[in-house]
């Protein structure tokens, strides 16, 4: 079985809007997949279903053997501990330093203080922020804040990293740096990456598998490097 698998998935909101329709998708362990499409095409909904921020109306969503669609609300945290999430708006706690923002995840899991410190420093070193441990979010640039967000996502060594437009708020240069960090995580840690984006430069340059969504439907699934955004649009 694939590491991530969507079977006949539908998401229809209460107001009747169909965000995802009949989606089937398989992603192997260690894959790097871009999910692309226009704004409001359903890519964020698809990403959110992976970490059960949205519940599918119909169908099954498997992540690392867990059927997300059938997961009880009270057990969702167990799924999220296996998934690292990178957000477009970073979602850092403003009153905590970079170190604290990453450490609080492990603290809330009940790790010992002696276990937490090396893990947090390792995660921050991996994203190149070893020198900024004591900086608060408002003392860091957007790129640095996104790195903290990535460090927080990988600190528990998740099997999969789900990224929802991680470069959406960054300039092209910084975006490149962030993508380098994410690519390294994929290569060095073997983490499966699934990333929603509409940054065509990144997609074209990185030559990864691309899943295209239009109006809530998966309309294309291209193997590594076989897709160029400009050709289709």
């Amino acid at each position: 079985m694939s590491f991530i698998e969507l079977q006949n998935v539908y998401k229809i909101y209460k107001n009747g809007v169909t965000a995802i329709a009949d989606a089937d998708l398989k992603i192997k362990k260690g894959d790097f997949v871009f999910v692309i499409g226009h704004t409001a095409c359903g890519k964020s909904t698809l990403i959110k279903m992976l970490y059960r921020e949205e519940k599918p109306t119909k169908g099954n969503v498997f992540v690392g053997g867990i059927n997300v669609a059938k997961l009880k609300n009270s057990k969702v945290y167990k799924l999220r501990r296996k998934i690292g999430i990178v957000f477009q708006d970073y979602k850092l706690l403003p009153k905590m330093t970079a170190y604290e923002n990453v450490a609080f995840v492990l603290e809330s899991y009940g790790y010992k203080a002696t276990e937490i410190k090396p893990k947090v420093i390792e995660a921050l070193a991996r994203v190149g922020l070893k020198e900024k441990l004591r900086s608060f979010p408002d003392e860091m640039s957007g790129g640095e804040q996104q790195r903290v967000c990535i460090a927080r996502a990988i600190v528990n060594k998740p099997k999969v990293l789900v990224c929802d437009e991680p470069t959406g708020n960054l300039d092209p240069e910084t975006s490149k740096e962030i993508m380098k960090v994410i690519e390294d995580i994929n290569k060095e840690m073997g983490t499966t990456i699934i990333m929603a984006t509409h940054d065509k430069d990144i997609v074209n340059r990185m030559k990864k598998r691309v899943v295209v969504i239009e109006n809530g439907c998966i309309v294309g699934d291209y193997e590594k490097g076989s897709y160029k955004v400009d050709e289709a649009h």
Partner: peptide, 17 residues
């Protein structure tokens, strides 16, 4: 609210939140 939201998203159990 944001703090609670972030804790939820990073896999903190409801009891711990």
């Amino acid at each position: 609210k944001n703090e609670i939201d972030i804790m939820r998203l990073v896999g903190t159990s409801n009891t711990v939140i």
